[in-house]
Design a protein around this nucleic acid. Structure first.
Lengths: 194, 194
DNA sequence: CGCGACGTTGATTTGCCTCAACGATTGTGG
DNA sequence: CCACAATCGTTGAGGCAAATCAACGTCGCG
């Protein structure tokens, strides 16, 4: 049973951490639901319940919260090879604090929590894959938290340029500002100086 | 085979997420190494390799980075029932960016990465336990990151008081300041106003 | 073509930091 | 048990990074 093209990206990602048999792979892929979103379309709105976690095949998503003054704060971008959702809502089935929206036209593979948990029972190695993903995501998030506490706005911008070189000149400045935690005006000044 | 007293705290924690057989439990507990640290003693210094992850039985630990100006920034406190380490170093065996130090006399249970991975193979349910821990830790860290981006210093202090009521009047003000990301002087002013 | 989203720039404000001085508390060695 | 140092919390004066508010030019797109 040949995997369809969008699944290949995920299978490549999987096999960097675990190896599955043909059967296990088929079982897993059968639960993945391909889904396309166009720029500015939502995978999840603030206040909804996050049914699915989404693997990004192509394109780019953003996960963000809107504060009481209506300003967006981007928790993370998800580029190809990353999973994205409101993890808190995905796990607890409470209302999400985050919205997940396409920054550009994006191909996704969706996996529901119930399917995921069922697969964990059938394929222990898949639980290992997600355990590793969670570990890595936690390390990344901890590092970002420390950066926010220790670095200046300029340094955070420079770090962003190193971490997301493929985005720097491809997405609006205001999105970068909202990710590194400054106003668009101030980021513009940062760029202007040197 | 009766578990010793310090292990009981961990077993209680475990059983909130998974259930192990007697044998599995014994196998797991055999790899845990009790360890005591006195106030201001280190479990891990910046630049060392994190051999172990530590479960806090009693007391309190802090994980923090020291910036180029010599200021401490506390990533997290670990009170009884929490695991603590420099996760990045624990996984990759590179030099740790964080130090882990006792805020007060503390009882720990240590588990090395190699023992942990070995146990994952022998007891898949244990991998589930840590998968769940990682999920929850990631949710917590993401929320803290968003708080840092959206809240004022005063609001972050109020949130701290709600999240760690058992610590607020028990640890030095400067530690709280270093956790919420302000100077001790400014936190003092926050407390003074109302 | 006209409108809205975007990036830039200037003037002003502000939240928080820096530096410095000062009591109060803790703890430590003699 | 005391003397002294160290750590801690507080307060004041001044400074700076970044936010705010506002105006304006540009561009992409319906």
């Amino acid at each position: 049973m040949p995997a369809s093209i969008p699944h290949d990206t995920l299978v490549a990602n999987l096999s960097r951490h675990i190896s599955l048999s043909e059967d296990e792979l088929a079982l897993f892929c059968a639960r993945l639901r391909p889904h396309k979103v166009k720029r500015k379309e939502f995978l999840l709105r603030q206040g909804e319940i996050a049914r699915d976690s989404a693997f990004v095949v192509s394109g780019c998503m953003k996960a963000y919260a809107t504060d009481t003054n209506g300003f967006e704060h981007i928790l993370r971008f998800a580029t190809p090879g990353w999973w994205v959702s409101d993890l808190s809502s995905f796990i607890t089935k409470r209302q999400s604090q985050l919205a997940v929206e396409a920054v550009r036209d994006t191909q996704l593979l969706l996996l529901s929590r119930s399917d995921q948990l069922e697969l964990f029972d059938k394929i222990p190695k898949l639980e290992r894959y997600f355990r590793i993903l969670m570990e890595n995501a936690l390390v990344t998030t901890q590092m970002r938290l420390m950066d926010n506490m220790t670095l200046t706005a300029r340094e955070r911008y420079q770090r962003f340029c190193r971490m997301y070189p493929e985005l720097v000149n491809e997405i609006p400045l205001k999105l970068i500002a909202s990710f590194i935690g400054v106003t668009p005006e101030f980021l513009s000044r940062i760029r202007a100086a040197k």
